[in-house]
Computed example of a mutant assay.
Amino acid sequence: MESIIKHLVEITGYRDHDLLNISIASSLREIFVARSARVSELSSNATATFLTAKVDITSTGVDVIDQSEPMLLSDKLSDIAELKTAIAGQQPVIEYLINNDPCICLLLWNTGRLEALIELIHPTNRSLNTMEVVRGMLVVYKNFLALLDYNERDSLTGLLNRKTFDDSYTRMLRMNVGHLALAEDELGADQPETENKVDHYHWLAVVDIDYFKRVNDQFGHLYGDEVLILIANIMRNSFQPNDHLFRFGGEEFLILVHSSSLGEAHRVLDQFRTNVEQYHFPQVGQVTVSIGFARIDTFEPAVATVGRADQALYYAKTHGRNQTCHYDMLVANGDLHQEYSNDIAEFF
């Protein structure tokens, strides 16, 4: 009993989804006396659902899998029929084999949506009492997760809120450091400093709805709220599972774009802008957005990156709107000057 209470205290001591999932996976590995535990999270876009491995946990510690590429959930289900049946029936616990090793899989549900899987490889404690304890822990987890969502997500759009931005930005910085270190290892430390050693970076984009005040004034705040909800839905369908989407306040959104080249980041962001432009908003008709984005530089504080993206957004808003502008490109072309203020709220 004392051990169970200790695990529950640890699980409910976190205010972060990733740490919460690691904590419950670590606790379950100990309870089942499993060789290892893997946490994988689910995400979706307009066409598919993906499964991304996040951490592997063993007796020696936690291995964070920052570079893991998402796999199609359908591929996983085609290999494991038991998992497909469990998801259809919203079951919390199932058993199957992975490479001939027994596995207990815990399905982490949140308001009817499957959010993550915890796979316990080669468990040795599989008593009936253990299974009952684990089912109880999953109920605690589910209730605690609902509280976290209430605190971390924007109540109108369901996107991440401003309070979660700093942690997400810090994690992306850590991944940026990893990418640069990997590139140096592959190319060699003796490469000239001027040589571009890596062409894939993370990016921060600031999105603002054009003439949003007119929407509220002409059609009312209920239709304004509907525009915000629909744009949030378009965002979910326009970006990859590893990208992070925030409503930063009012009609302003932030996007953390996962590792990609400048050309690919510009293409994805501009495709989102086009998707909004081509969407017919009920009663309102056409709505457009302006986007400014900047590369996330290693060791640079979030406020500096947001400031550069804001300046690119300011340029987009003052030069026709409904366009996507990259900060460094504007500076290189002489189009952007430092007298632009980072505080652009009054203009919008």
Rank of each mutant, 00 (worst) to 15 (best):
S23P: 06
L106G: 07
G250P: 07
V287H: 05
Y279D: 01
L254K: 02
L145N: 12
G13C: 04
L73W: 05
E184K: 15
T157Y: 03
A86F: 11
A25G: 10
H258K: 10
L182F: 09
V276C: 10
R247S: 00
D199R: 14
D243H: 08
R174A: 11
T52G: 10
E264L: 12
H202R: 14
M172E: 01
C105P: 02
R308D: 00
D328N: 12
I57W: 06
V64T: 13
S261Y: 05
L19M: 06
G320R: 10
T157H: 09
Q278H: 15
M329S: 15
P70V: 07
H221R: 11
I118P: 00
H258L: 04
F248V: 01
I104Y: 07
R321N: 05
Y223F: 15
L159R: 05
T164A: 13
Y315V: 09
Y169E: 05
S26W: 11
S40V: 07
F212W: 09
T157P: 09
I118M: 06
I31D: 02
D75G: 15
V215R: 11
S44M: 08
L160E: 01
S68E: 01
G320D: 03
C105R: 12
L77M: 14
I94C: 12
T318D: 07
S78C: 09
F281H: 09
E41A: 14
D243W: 06
R15H: 10
R236G: 06
A146T: 11
R273V: 07
G307C: 05
L262G: 06
G158Y: 11
I234P: 04
S27W: 04
N176C: 09
V276N: 11
V140K: 08
T124V: 10
F32N: 04
N45H: 07
I57P: 08
R174W: 02
L83T: 08
C105V: 03
E2P: 02
T324F: 04
V287P: 02
T194V: 10
V133T: 13
N216G: 08
V306R: 09
T111D: 13
Q323A: 13
R273C: 08
V206S: 03
D101L: 12
T47D: 10
D335T: 04
F165Q: 03
E226V: 02
F32K: 10
S260Q: 11
V276D: 04
V62S: 01
L72N: 03
R267L: 08
H221G: 07
D154W: 00
T130W: 00
